[in-house]
Computed example of a mutant assay.
Amino acid sequence: MTPMKEDYLKIIFELGGTKKKITNKQISLSLNVAAGSVTEMVSKLVKEELASHTPYAGISLTPKGIEVAEQLVRRHRLWEVFLYDKLEYKLADVHDDAEILEHTTSDRLMNHLDVFLNYPTHCPHGGVIPSADGKYQEDSHLVLADVTDGQEVVVERFIDNHDLLTYLDDLKLKIGDRLKVIAHQPFEGPVKIRLISDQQEMNVSFKAAHYIFVK
């Protein structure tokens, strides 16, 4: 399986494709690839019975695709925990090296790494880590962009994207922060939020607001 195909399976998993239909646009935004490339890859995943596609509704993972995605996510995120906690990588920098390591790791090494890290349940950017037997608690799939004005939410996780994590680090927005959505600016403008802890207000870009999951 090619690394690009694996990236598609992982992002469909992360966006909630085990339980609901994910649009091509969501995948395109998250992977920063052209819409035509998404259509082509989705066709390949469907042909290999890793995903199912309903026209005008979206794509979801099949049981076979879910099993493959869970193993890919487990490998990737365990390495992210190791790099972040043990080697003190910056959060924005863990993805690329974890991507390399996950493709060269045996099941035996993965299980030993899991034990060494004391069976972590989530990676540094908040994503769930499936256990060796495929058990995990489902993440929230509500994104900040879809929260109604006036509602209070807690930041649960971020999409694993270097530019996004660098941007959020500059904003000082962290996992676990409680915030109130003040207003959605029109014409794909930013989302204005207020942190509950210190009442600080900030604007989160339209694109970033689609990468921040809350509950």
Rank of each mutant, 00 (worst) to 15 (best):
G127A: 03
H125E: 02
A145P: 00
V128R: 04
H122E: 14
L164D: 02
Q151P: 00
E152Q: 15
G126C: 07
I129K: 05
T166C: 00
T166I: 04
T166K: 14
D139Q: 13
P124I: 03
D107Y: 04
H125G: 00
E152P: 10
E138S: 10
H103E: 08
V147R: 14
E152V: 11
V128A: 14
D107N: 08
Q137E: 13
K135W: 02
M110F: 02
L142I: 15
S106W: 11
N111E: 14
H112S: 07
T104L: 11
G134A: 04
L142W: 06
V115N: 01
E152T: 15
E102W: 09
C123N: 01
C123W: 00
H141G: 00
R157I: 04
T148H: 10
E102M: 15
E138T: 14
V128N: 04
H122R: 11
V155P: 05
V153R: 13
I100R: 15
P124N: 01
L144N: 06
D160A: 13
I100S: 08
L164Y: 05
P124Q: 06
V147F: 12
V143I: 13
V147D: 12
R157N: 06
I100L: 15
E138V: 13
D133C: 01
N161H: 11
T166M: 08
Y136V: 04
D139H: 04
S140H: 07
S131Y: 03
G126R: 03
Q151C: 10
D160R: 08
L165F: 09
S131Q: 03
V147W: 15
K135S: 12
N161A: 03
I159M: 12
T121A: 12
E138K: 10
E102T: 11
K135E: 12
F158E: 04
D146L: 08
S140G: 13
D146W: 01
I129H: 08
Y136Q: 03
L165R: 10
H162E: 11
P130Q: 02
T121Q: 14
C123L: 00
G150Q: 07
H103I: 08
N118P: 00
E102V: 02
H122C: 03
I100W: 12
K135Y: 04
H112Y: 15
A132R: 05
L164G: 04
P124G: 07
Y119D: 05
L117S: 07
K135L: 09
C123P: 02
D163K: 15
Y136H: 12
T105M: 09
L117H: 06
L142M: 12
H122N: 10
A132I: 09
H103W: 07
H112P: 00
E138F: 05
E138W: 03
I129Q: 11
H112R: 10
L117F: 11
V147P: 08
L117A: 03
H162Y: 08
H162Q: 11
